[in-house]
């Protein structure tokens, strides 16, 4: 397993405390977890940063892993491209323990990257980032005609939808016929 710990450098330092020293609770060392995407590159991320993801937060909340156990068991997200997971990890690190701003201008402008990011963020259940992404997707069609919108969002024409529907019906019919034939074969 290849490993990179680029995420650690951007991990935020311990939160400064404003409470008087005598009343300050003993500082709990921050725990870290490890995730990897399709490219198997492992990212070390703090539990604080991972709180943005409802999916991962739910997974880790009851694990009680030691540092060694966490390192040995990175969470695999095989459905997410490595560069997309990197973007997500960076975003979680940047916004760790901070209120999210009303807008995020650092999202990818290329539509395919944004598309993959939306799917990844939706899968990982990162609500705030998903909201930013959806805003960005909506922005893509500002000032565009219906034909231009179709091209940008790859929306099929009515004819294409009809053809796809016919094809699906045909396939379903064939599958049903196959099942009937198989059932008849079994009966024999």
């Amino acid at each position: 397993m290849s490993s990179t710990e680029q995420g650690t450098s951007s991990a935020a330092p311990a939160e400064p405390t404003t409470a008087p020293e005598s009343a300050a609770a003993p500082e709990v060392p921050e725990s870290f977890y490890y995730v990897h995407g399709k490219d198997k590159v492992v990212h070390k991320v703090s539990a604080g940063a991972l709180q943005h993801s409802a999916l991962i937060h739910g997974m880790i909340s009851n694990l009680g892993y030691t540092e060694e156990q966490a390192k040995a068991n990175p969470f695999p997200f095989e459905n997410i491209d490595g560069d997309i997971l990197q973007m997500v990890v960076d975003w979680c690190n940047q916004h760790k323990g901070k209120p999210t701003p009303p807008e995020d201008t650092n999202l990818p402008k290329q539509k395919e990257k944004l598309f993959d990011l939306v799917l990844a963020v939706n899968y990982l259940e990162i609500k705030e980032l998903l909201t930013y992404c959806c805003k960005q997707v909506a922005m893509m069609v500002k000032g565009k005609s219906p034909e231009e919108i179709r091209e940008i969002w790859m929306i099929p024409t009515d004819a294409e939808d009809e053809a796809a529907e016919k094809e699906a019906k045909k396939r379903a019919g064939k599958e049903a016929a196959g099942e009937t034939a198989a059932a008849a074969g079994d009966a024999k």
């Binding site: 998903l130 919108i149 179709r150 929306i155 099929p156």
Partner: peptide
Amino acid sequence: DILDNMEFSEIFLLSFVSHNM
């Protein structure tokens, strides 16, 4: 969520893209 972020004028135009849309 994407549609919620669009103006009524944009939604109006989007409705002409296809019947399914």
